[in-house]
Amino acid sequence: MLTKSDLTTKSKHCTMHRSTVTFGSIMQILITTQSTTPIFRQIVDQLRRQIASGQLAVGDALPSVRQLAKDLVINPNTVAKAYAELQRDGLIESRQGRGVFVAKRRVIFTKTERTRRLDDAIERFAAEALSLDFSNDEILERISSKLEQLTHEPG
């Protein structure tokens, strides 16, 4: 399990190398090498989560590809790829000469596509959750409270 940290840690025992970058007081991106997840996907996932949770509000500026790459000490192509995917999914938009910003959420996927994506996410989550030896009800309860917390929607 990854733990949040806003310090760069060096570990003698594992070859993982972590980088984090902080934006203002809100945004942190943490990437790890030697992970089964490619780096660009880690960025995508984290940004997606931050947008979903509201840490990044609509209209917030994201760092430029170059800047983020420099801060994370990774290849800019990787950041570009992550940004491209997010842009394709409609989560961010690029404004001419001004930079990259969090986009207003637009529905750009069909219902089928959205359902398929939801099923994918559920699949990933369910496998892991079930392995933790909780009952279905306990899992559902925790999902509920989490969604509430994130979206401020009751129930």
Binding site: V65, R66, N77, A84, S94, V100
Partner: peptide
């Protein structure tokens, strides 16, 4: 594929 976002 060209990564247009590289220029931002």
């Amino acid at each position: 594929q060209s990564e247009s976002l590289l220029s931002t």
